[in-house]
Design a protein around this nucleic acid. Structure first.
Length: 283
DNA sequence: ATGTGTTCCTGTCCGC
DNA sequence: TGCGGACAGGAACACA
């Protein structure tokens, strides 16, 4: 499911279509996703202008002229597809409705934004804009990995004493917000750190190398439109293509791409989730 | 507090 | 083809 690069890709595709525009009509086709929609959500969206489309971690935040903000999480399989873009340059005419089209926003001027989420692990909520940071889903999030407060000092201090494997620590959204299974595997491979190593037992200098590596892999993935394994699509329906640049994720049995390593990518399970890494060059 | 396992839901793929 | 099981990009929740 979408991690930070996929969510940012979706935000960037959505922004030119809805930022500054009015939601002419909102429609919900079921009462809930992972949780019930907030009361009267469709009515509260209808007629509102989207003043700004932002992102925090894996959440898309649509600030509205009504003083509220629509919080959107794509869960594992959520997509936001744009159709009928009046510019006609990037987006297709309205396609036939699909199974799992749960929320549809008709934008003044003719564009349509459709939220489709087969597995329904996604979520939406609508709260006063000044309450977004304190929202229970966002309140405990750690720093943005591409932001200034995520630096070597922070990471070393934050992981001091932690006995959990570094893989699990980086998946913990309170430590750093926005990484998921793919980009944690990719970052650890690039840093040459074993995913099994206890987070608090890694030498600070080695831990510090993770910071630029995480930034790099996320930036490259955003540049590539994210990674499409099965569900992720850009807002125009196109695939992302960063999956072609994976060095470890999903490559069990393949040769390790590290120059001169000669090892083989292995798959293990850590706290119920697949980890891909090279046992030879990741120590 | 910290760490781990389970759970939500649907779709797809692989082996028999 | 059909069927069962494993697995999937998240993360809240319950429990040791």
């Amino acid at each position: 499911m979408p991690e930070l690069p996929e969510v940012e890709t979706v935000r960037r595709g959505l922004a030119p279509v809805i930022e500054g525009r009015v939601i002419a009509r909102a429609r919900v086709n079921r009462p809930d996703l992972r949780w019930p929609f907030p009361p009267g959500m469709a009515d509260r969206l209808t007629g509102a202008r989207v003043t700004r489309l932002g992102r925090r971690s894996k959440y898309i935040l649509a600030d509205l002229s009504t003083g509220e903000t629509l919080i959107i999480h794509l869960g594992m399989s959520g997509r936001m597809l744009v159709s009928g873009d009046p510019l006609g340059l990037f987006h297709h005419a309205h396609p036939a409705p699909e199974k799992h089209d749960h929320v549809v926003l008709e934008i003044e001027g003719g564009a349509r934004v459709t939220f489709n989420d087969a597995r329904r692990f996604g979520a939406m909520d609508l709260v006063p804009t000044d309450a977004v940071e304190g929202h229970w889903l966002l309140a405990d999030l750690g720093p943005e990995p591409l932001g200034n407060t995520f630096d070597e000092r922070y990471l070393v201090a934050r992981l001091r004493g932690r006995m959990t494997p570094i893989k699990a620590a980086l998946l913990d959204q309170r430590v750093v917000a926005g990484l998921g299974n793919i980009y944690v595997c990719e970052a650890l491979h690039r840093a040459g750190i074993s995913p099994r190593r206890k987070a608090g037992r890694i030498a600070p200098a080695r831990l510090a190398t993770l910071v630029p590596v995480i930034r790099d892999v996320l930036a490259e993935a955003i540049e590539a439109g994210g990674s499409s394994l099965r569900d992720h699509r850009q807002t125009d329906g196109e695939l992302g293509y960063f999956q072609h640049s994976f060095r470890a994720y999903g490559r069990e049995g393949a040769p390790c791409p590290t120059p001169g390593c000669g090892g083989q990518i292995a798959r293990i399970v850590q706290s119920g989730r697949s980890t891909f890494y090279c046992p030879k060059c990741q120590r």
